[in-house]
Design a binder for these strands. Sequence first.
DNA 1: CGATTAAATTTCATAATATGAAACGCTGTT
DNA 2: AACAGCGTTTCATATTATGAAATTTAATCG
Lengths: 263, 263
Amino acid sequence: MTKTQPYRGTQAVLRAIALLKVFTDARPQWGLSDLAQAVGLNKTTTYRLLTALESEELLERHAETDTYRLGLGMISLGGYALRANDLRALCQQELRSLAALAKETAALELLTGAEVLILDEVTGDRVMSGGQAIGTRWPVYATSTGKAMLAFMTAAEVTAVLPPQWLPLTPHTLPDHAALFADFAQTRARGFALADEELEIGLVAVGAPLLDFDGRVVAAISLAGPKTRLGNGRIAEIGSLVAAAARRVSIHLGYAPDVVINK
Amino acid sequence: MTKTQPYRGTQAVLRAIALLKVFTDARPQWGLSDLAQAVGLNKTTTYRLLTALESEELLERHAETDTYRLGLGMISLGGYALRANDLRALCQQELRSLAALAKETAALELLTGAEVLILDEVTGDRVMSGGQAIGTRWPVYATSTGKAMLAFMTAAEVTAVLPPQWLPLTPHTLPDHAALFADFAQTRARGFALADEELEIGLVAVGAPLLDFDGRVVAAISLAGPKTRLGNGRIAEIGSLVAAAARRVSIHLGYAPDVVINK
DNA sequence: CGATTAAATTTCATAATATGAAACGCTGTT
DNA sequence: AACAGCGTTTCATATTATGAAATTTAATCG
């Protein structure tokens, strides 16, 4: 029987990872039975997997409530993962100056699948941070960074990344591919992308892509703040700050600014 | 055959976790063969485990060099783990004010085994941070937080935690149990622990424990900076800042300050 | 260039190991 | 007291992980 296996690697490990991924900001705490149901596994199997994860501190369980949470081992590994990222180190100084100059929150984000992942965040210290949201993911099509990255990719790449359709997150979320592609043109003309209450009401952000030696999109950086502070008057100023910073980093990545952008 | 199995949970999962834990700040990048050897697994087995971890983005591999690093999924999970920690949320404001007041780096640390784990860190912004070292672990006996926690635990608990002996990290590292216990007495009298170049030459830190409703040690907070700034003149001042902050948090945890400390 | 490593990858037979149904025990609820 | 929901243990089964060996790939060197 030469049946190709439907999973990559080791089944038990994939199942364990599936369990871990169920823990999110929205639901950081789980009991055994709920978990088993959530990932569609037998309760006994789930129990054993959890036991393994717990014994290595990737999960911890609260004795009283008999519920699991992500554990200290996870925090350690996350820290190592973060610090192993060269791009983050490369951008840190730029993020700091951006945040300091604009007095808004600066972020570095990567594209993964149809989402952007926050790799680093430096708050402007006007408000008290809000959320150190490193590791959080947002849909590409509703973020300044996401739109900035897509705008500098080929149409083929973009359609490969984007879901065929999506539900709007706010009344201002761009509704479809057509609207997005129109936005990309503006973004390229401007030099930065603008997400004006498209992700969340009251939140405005501008983003610019980081390009490597090949002119390929690597990541994006952004500045974000409340609509009350980031009115139309300040967009151009903030936008050019971000674009300039992105350009400086891109040059570090070997990007040659005079080369024609592919697309 | 009622042989008790030598591992807890699922073997394959434990092996996968062992692989993950090999990735550290000191060695963030590994090739397959090295990994297999490091954890003592067959190369094929290692290969399959890595494949699973990679397919779920807990690891990523650099195409050119054929080496693995911790991946984006790890960053996400680490972020969730961090944000699921109530203690961290509870202390964040105190850490900020400490860092701002003292213009030094404030940290919140937990005890795990014979090590402290940095759960949060707020830099004083005088120097440019140094290291966002969240998730990093240090030996209890050479840190202000570690010594602060031990000083408020029972002798039995302390000896259970401490290794029988250790190698000094600097010429000032306390050499053995006796020296540590003497230090605990001072710590209790002072209200805070002092680590004066015991972990690293040039680094001075003061720490105080967080106690819960039972008077039991939960964690510790600290202020740390270079010896050049934290000379003997400033220790008392900085120390009482930390002790006061720790006390405020402890009260939030239900600690009743007038109750006699167990020990 | 061909030879020589060293490394990653695939194959395949084997049985060790993960699996899940069922039974058990515990706790709180009606 | 009976019930319901949950975590835990047991145990027979074969699925699934395993590792030795063979194969491919890439890099290094004579």
